[in-house]
């Protein structure tokens, strides 16, 4: 659970725009990394099954 940090002054519209752009960029990269890891773990599993049979 998160709460808003009230000790910081509110962001200006420009800062908010930059903040959201950065959030979006990080989300896109994280999605790419997760897809990459899914493929990698799938391949590792196939190789391991192949080696044990």
């Amino acid at each position: 659970m998160s709460e808003i940090d009230t000790s910081q002054p509110p962001m200006s519209p420009e800062e908010q725009k930059a903040f959201q752009a950065r959030q979006k960029q990080r989300a896109v990269i994280m999605a790419g990394l997760l897809i990459f890891l899914c493929v990698l773990f799938y391949l590792i599993t196939i190789v391991k099954i192949g080696a044990s049979t």
Binding site: M1, E3, D5, P10, M11, F19, Q23, R26
Partner: peptide, 15 residues
């Protein structure tokens, strides 16, 4: 419970 980052400084860029 965590405190959400509400500044640009608090959210590091991927770079």
């Amino acid at each position: 419970m965590t405190t959400a980052s509400t500044t640009l400084h608090g959210l590091a860029s991927a770079k």
